[in-house]
Design a protein around this nucleic acid. Structure first.
Lengths: 210, 210
DNA sequence: TAGATTGTTAATCGATTAACAATC
DNA sequence: TAGATTGTTAATCGATTAACAATC
C-alpha cells in the first residue's frame, strides 16, 4: 500500500465508470476531460486529478480512450474479479438485492441467502438457495465467501457480523440501521443507510419551506 | 433561506439522530459533546460545530439534553411532518421499500405504487395499492404526493421523472442507475446508487491485496 | 463559587480549482 | 510543426480541528 487515496476520490470512481459505460454504449471512442466534465457537471481539473491518483490514462493532445479508461477503472474497482456474496436476512430487502441480477455483470455473484424464518427453509430466490442461520458455519467452511450483505434487523446485526468475522468474512455490505463496529482493522464495512438517505431528502424538502 | 449549510453537515445529521435515538432507548438523559464524540468516533469539535449551524441546543457546564436534541434534529430533518411517497416501479426493490414499514415511524408514508406490468393490476403490497402507469395523472390530481421513489430501469427514469415533475412532484428518491438531471432548480434529487456503493466496497477489498 | 462544557473564533488541514509546462 | 490536451504544481477554497472565553 503506497500513498492512501482519499475516500472522496474513491466515491467518485464508480460514477466515472458509469459515465464511461454510457459513452461506450453511445459508441464514443475518445473523450477529453473537458467534454467529460460538462457531461458530469464536475470540473475537468477534478477529473484529471482523480484519475492521476491511479496513473496516467490519457494522452496529451488526444484525451482519453473511452474503452481503455473504462476497463482501467473497472480494474481499480476490482470488477475484473469475482466477488461471492451471501445475503444474511432473506426478507424483502435481501430478496430484492438477490433479484438484482445486474450486479452479476460487474462480477458480484450471490451464492446463498440465510434467514432464521423456518418458513423459508428449502425455498430459493432466483434459483439461489435460502438456508437457515444454523447452517452458516457449515456453508462457510465449504464455500468461499467474499462479502456478506446484511439485511437483517439492527438488533441482530452486530453479533451476526462478529459471527461472520469469526468465519473469515472480512467485507460487509451493511443495510442494517446501525453502524457496524467490528474492531478489526482489516474488516471493511460499506454502510447503506436508506433511512439516512431519506432523511437527507426530507431535510432538503423542508429547507425550502423555511 | 439564510446562509447555506453544507451538504457535508446535512449528511451527518441523520447519524446524530440515530445515535441520540439509541441513547434515548438506553434511558440516557444528557450527554456532552465529548461523550457523544467517543461513541460516534468523531471529534467533539465537529459535533458542536455541526449543531451550531442550526442553533445552540446545549448548555454550558451541562451538555445536551438527549430528548430535546433528538426532537430538534428531528425537526431540522423534517421528521415532524408527514411525507407522502409514491413508488414508481413495483418490482423487487419497490416492494422491498414499501414493506419497510419502519419509514412510517419517521413520517414517511407510502400511499401507492405504480408499474407498467399488467400482471400487477389490482394487487397490493402491505395493503398499499399498485396502479398502472396510465393512472398516474389521475392519481396525482386527486392525491397529494411529496416524494416519488424511482425504482425502475434506468432507461425509463429520466422521462418518467420529467412526467412527474410536470405533475407537480418536486422531490425524488432515485434508485435508478443514472443521475437524474431535471434542469429545474427546485427539484430535489436524492440518489441511492446501490451498485456504486458495492463498487466502493469492492475497491476497498481489492486494495488490500495490492 | 468552582468545575464543566458549550458556543465561537482562530489555526490547520485537506480537497478542489486554476494554471501552465510537458508532450502527443 | 501547430494545436490540443494531459499530467502536475501552485493557489484557493472549504471543512475540520484546536483553543479558549463565555456562561451555566
Amino acid at each position: 500500500m503506497e500513498k492512501e487515496i482519499s475516500q472522496a476520490v474513491i466515491r467518485r470512481m464508480p460514477r466515472y465508470y458509469r459515465y464511461l459505460g454510457e459513452l461506450l454504449d453511445e459508441g464514443v471512442e475518445r473523450i477529453s476531460s473537458n467534454d467529460l466534465s460538462s457531461r458530469m457537471l464536475v470540473t475537468a481539473s477534478q477529473i484529471r486529478q482523480d484519475l492521476n491518483n491511479f496513473g496516467g490514462f490519457g494522452q496529451q493532445g488526444y484525451g482519453y480512450n473511452v474503452k481503455f479508461l473504462y476497463d482501467e477503472i473497472g480494474k481499480i474497482l476490482g470488477l475484473d474479479q469475482k466477488h461471492k456474496i451471501i445475503v444474511i436476512g432473506a426478507g424483502n430487502l435481501g430478496q430484492a438485492i438477490t433479484n438484482y441480477a445486474t450486479f452479476e455483470k460487474w462480477g458480484f455473484i450471490i451464492t446463498a441467502l440465510f434467514d432464521i424464518n423456518p418458513a423459508l427453509q428449502n425455498t430459493s430466490v432466483r434459483g439461489i438457495p435460502v438456508y437457515m442461520m444454523e447452517e452458516l458455519e457449515a456453508y462457510c467452511s465449504r464455500q468461499p465467501v467474499d462479502i456478506a450483505a446484511l439485511t437483517l434487523p439492527k438488533e441482530q446485526a452486530p453479533k451476526t457480523a462478529r459471527r461472520l468475522v469469526d468465519l473469515g468474512i472480512h467485507a460487509f455490505w451493511n443495510f442494517a440501521h446501525v453502524d457496524l463496529d467490528v474492531d478489526d482493522r482489516d474488516v471493511i464495512v460499506e454502510n447503506v443507510h436508506l433511512s439516512d438517505s431519506l432523511m437527507q431528502l426530507s431535510y432538503n424538502i423542508v429547507k425550502n419551506r423555511r
